[in-house]
Each structure stands twice: as C-alpha cells, then as structure tokens.
Design a protein around this nucleic acid. Structure first.
Length: 508
RNA sequence: GGCGCAUUGGUGUAGUUGGUUAACACGCAGCCCUCUCAAGGCUGAGACCACGGGUUCGAGCCCCGUAUGCGCUGCCA
C-alpha cells in the first residue's frame, strides 16, 4: 500500500514549486490507490508561522488536493526525535559535540558556507576531525551531567558509501568522506531536519518520498540515518526544480507574489487550469500530444516514470500586465474558462462578482437564465475570472468606466455619432421582439437610411454600451444588455466632446 | 573549492531497442473569417538537438572531455 506525504515547512506562503510537489504526491497516491498525507515541518520555530500554515492548507484546498489523514505537525514529534538521537548516542552511533554553538546570520549564509567550504578544501578537510567524536563515553556522560551544552552529531563511518536508486534520477552513490558528521539535535534540544524527516517518515509509514531535487544530496544523509536506525528507507523520487525566467531559483524576495500559489487564485485562475498547467511542468503523460487534461485523466495517466530530470523554466514578467505570468498558464486558463461546463464556471463567476460587489441575488433566481447567457457570451474572450468584473463589468452594472482609447476611436472620431446614436436608440426601442437578429435588422436599416456604414454605428454602440472598443458580436451584446438599457446607454450623456480636455482616466 | 544533477527552437515538452525531411503545445508573424477583439481555419519564421572528441555503415539517442546552469556542502528546511 502506497503512502506518500507532502511535507512543506511553513516559512512563507505555499509557492508554486511546492504546490507542484504536492500535486505529484497527490496524483501518485490517487493513481495507485494509496494514501496522501500532509505533514507540516515546523521544527524551525523562529521562521515558522501560523499564517504560512494556513496559506499551505488553503492552497491545497484550492487545488483540490485533499489529504487522507490528520495533519501531522512535526513539532509535536520533537520528543520522538530527541529520543532517537539519545538512543543513537547510547549505541555509539552518534556523539555529543561540546563545541560552543556559532550563531550564523541567515542573510548571505549561502555565500558564507561556500566560502568556508572552499577554504577548508584548500587546506584539506577531514570531516572526522571533531575532537569530541571519540571522546570516551564516561567523559561525555560526565560533561553532559554537569550541564555543559552539546549538540548531537551522527558518527558517520570513516569508509564506505551510501547508495539508493532514485526513481527519477537513477542510481545514486556518495562516499562517506563527502558527508559531514551532521547535527541531529541542536544544543537547545531542537531536532534538525534530516533526523526529523527520517523519524517521521518512519512513523507515518511513508513508502515513497516524492520531493524537490534540492534534496537529492541530502538523501544520502538520511540513508545514513536509516542505516544506523536499522530500518529500510522508503523509495525516493526527486523532482526537477521550477526556475525563474533567468534560470535562477524562484524566490519570494526576488520575484514577489508571482511565485505564490494564492496569487493565482486571487488573480482569477481556475484551479483546474492551474493544476493542469503545473502537472505539465516536469512531467508529461505517455500520450504527450494531449495537454488539456481533466483531473481524472491526470490521475489515470500519472506515473513517476514520466517525470523529467531537467529543471523547467516558469515564465513571467511582472512589469507586463498582459504577460504577468507564464503565457501558457494564461492560455490554458482562458481555454478552461471558455470550454469548461457552464455549470462549473457559474459559481466561480459568482464568487468573483460578489467580491467586487457586482453580484445580485436575482442572477441566481429569476434572472438565472439571463445570467447564464451573459456569462456564456462574454467568457469566450476572457483570460481570467477577474475579467468578468473588469472587462465584463458593463454587463452587470450601469456604473462602468469608458476606455479613453475606445471613446476616442469609436465616438469622438465622427461627430455625426452625437446625433446618430440617440436616433438609433429610438429605433431600437421600437424593435419587437428583442433579439440579436431583430436589433441587427434595425441597426442596418438605420445605417442605410442615415447613409453611414453599419460599422460606425456598431463600434460606437459597443463603446457606449460597454465602455470598450472590443467585445462580443454587437448584436449579441444588444440582446443581453436589453432593449431599455441599450437605448438608455446610447443616449446617456457621455460628454465626449469634453472628453479630450479631461484627464484620460476620468472619462466616465 | 569539493561532490552531485542536468543540457532538444524564446518557453513547456515528444522523440520507440542508434536509421534517413527532429514532432506537438504556448508565444511570435502573415492570411482567411469578420461590426471590433478573441476563438477557429490555413500558412510561416524559429533548433546544425550546449560545445569538442570518439564508437558506428549511420548518433538527439552510446562513451569520454569541456562549458554553462542548478543543487548540496548550516546547531535552515
């Protein structure tokens, strides 16, 4: 029976790389009929926050990745970890290190470590030269009893190698000489990552560890711990990383909110679309020609064998509103918005309108039919759910903005429109019944009489009715907006001759 | 510095046991459609498969080296 876990550390929001790791774990569990677990790795008390934990849970919920058992908080298992560490000391597999703790500033730490490693390499390091490594049991016990602080380090054997077969990256081995005597327990008694994961994965009977490739080399240390514990390690499958456009690591500090999963929810992504997109980053199904996949299809076609080894670049451009995130993700979201069953889209649109105070209860009741037709009409050219409340605003409210460019191009350009549009309103008011076809007949007849091109009236009407220069077929718009509202808007006093004098964004 | 991992058009990917015009999607350009913008249809540009050697009748696929990128190297996870 397969048991997998997603084990994020709550030191920030859930970012898309972690979200993908969660997705893959979940897909694998569902594909194999296994169990998907969630463990919050909050052993770093300084950096862990409750807000992060919430963001992780919310994110998983949004993506629809339900976990099968109670959430495990790693900090609750600290006593287990300590017991294991002490046990290893008793067995002589680990030792107390009485070296005083050196504080490290978190910022710039990577450079510091690399530099130190370089310096050590230059003078020939021996990872086993810790003076306390071979301290006699008696003295070690005595100093501990006397209250001298100590960390517990694993006593890595002098010679040998660790091996494991990664499902994605294949056979891996690492010489013991490459592995330092890692700290298991801090001098303040806090268990550290490598010990904690091993103990908890064992506790939770995890059979397959699926996680980011940044842990590939850590795995050797964990294998070592499994060995001294005399337990068999789980299977490991490491995932390629998701990189920023410059092929660097995705980070909050450098890249901001584009890397946060909740940003996608908040900016109008359909969860199914984003999930679909994420699944294709670093994995591809056997029938690769199919990219738009339902959840069921993802579940049935998912396999660890389809995971790649090379990192994937996630494109985005914060400065360009049109390409603020990956083009393909945006395309996929649009594809979902225009093709998903209307019944599934409606609730999402409802939430969006509600959050913008555009939702009216009638839309769910007597005007439900109208609402569905309106959504059907406008969804065809939307990219995100946000578009329903921005570009789609005029369909749900009489209080909408006019795009200055649209006003200029479709209204101000031809002064005749000032008289023609109200006249068109008169004509339309007489149309019976009110449909796209009848309004089209009326408009075309009027344009012939007036001796102007239909396009002039059509484009002018579009801007008068929606404030925009682009949108669905105008006659469909007439039908949806309704006869009275259409006529009213055609006559409404847009002061377009004064417009040019006003600041562009004040045009209303 | 050491160790590890990776390397197919701008991006995501496909490329069966090495076999001849390197495929698909997004993006980009153009055309068609058309009341605009999308969608849709068609067409196109864009990759000497990181580079250099080798093995072979033949290599994107195998081997070696180099470069580049990424990861780990912490009493962070």
């Amino acid at each position: 029976m397969i048991r997998v876990r997603f084990a994020p550390s709550p030191t920030g929001y859930l970012h898309i790389g972690s979200a993908r790791t969660a997705l893959f774990n979940w897909l694998y569990a569902r594909n194999t009929g296994g169990t998907f677990l969630l463990r919050i790795e909050d052993t770093d008390l300084q950096r862990s926050t409750e807000a992060s934990t919430r963001s992780i849970i919310e994110g998983l919920e949004w993506l629809g990745l339900n976990y099968d058992e109670e959430i495990v908080f790693q900090s609750n298992n600290a006593e287990n970890h300590r017991r294991a560490a002490r046990h290893l000391v008793d067995e002589g597999r680990a030792y107390r290190d009485f070296t005083p703790k050196v504080e490290r500033a978190d910022a710039g730490i990577k450079e510091g470590i690399a530099e130190r490693a370089r310096a050590q390499a230059a003078e020939g390091v021996n990872h086993r030269n810790n003076p306390y490594r071979d301290l006699s049991k008696e003295e070690s016990d005595r100093r501990a009893r006397d209250g001298e602080p100590f960390a517990i380090r694993l006593k890595v054997p002098e010679v040998g190698k660790t091996f494991f077969a990664d499902v994605v990256y294949g056979e891996q081995s690492r010489d013991y000489a490459e592995i330092e005597d890692l700290v298991l327990l801090r001098s303040d008694g806090h268990p550290l990552y490598n010990l904690a994961v091993v103990i908890d994965d064992l506790d939770m009977n995890v059979t397959d560890v699926i996680r980011g490739q940044d842990h590939l080399t850590n795995t050797h240390k964990q294998i070592l711990i499994y060995e001294v514990l005399d337990r068999t390690p789980p299977r490991f499958a490491h995932l390629p990383l998701i990189l920023a456009p410059n092929k660097g690591k995705l980070s909050k500090r450098k890249h901001g909110e584009v890397v946060s999963l909740t940003t996608y929810r908040d900016r109008g992504f359909v969860a199914a679309a984003f999930r679909n997109f994420l699944a294709l980053l670093g994995w591809s199904p056997e029938e690769a020609e199919k990219e738009l996949m339902t959840l069921d299809e993802l579940v049935t076609s998912f396999s660890l064998e389809g995971i790649h080894r090379s990192n994937a670049v996630f494109n985005f451009n914060e400065t360009d509103p049109r390409h603020w995130t990956d083009d393909k993700a945006l395309w996929m979201n649009a594809e979902y918005i225009r093709t998903m069953p209307l019944a599934e889209l409606i609730p999402l649109v409802k939430d969006e309108l509600r959050s913008e105070k555009l939702w009216r209860e009638e839309y769910g009741e007597e005007e439900r039919g109208w609402f569905e037709r309106a959504v059907e009409l406008i969804r065809q050219r939307f990219f995100t759910l946000k578009d329903f409340s921005t570009q789609g605003r005029a369909y749900f409210s009489d209080d909408f903005d006019f795009e200055p460019a649209a006003v200029k191009k479709n209204l101000i350009k031809d002064p005749k429109l000032k008289e023609l549009l109200p006249q068109l309103a008169d004509r339309l008011e007489a149309v019976e019944p009110w449909t796209a076809e009848t309004s089209e007949q009326a408009l075309r007849a009027f344009s012939d009489e007036a001796g102007v091109k239909a396009g002039l009236l059509i484009n002018g009407s579009r801007t008068m009715l929606t404030g925009q220069s682009v949108g669905p077929s105008m006659f469909e718009v007439f039908e949806i907006i309704g006869r009275e509202r259409s006529a009213q808007r055609l006559r409404s006093g847009v002061p377009w001759f004064d417009v040019a004098a006003e600041p562009a964004d004040n045009v209303k």
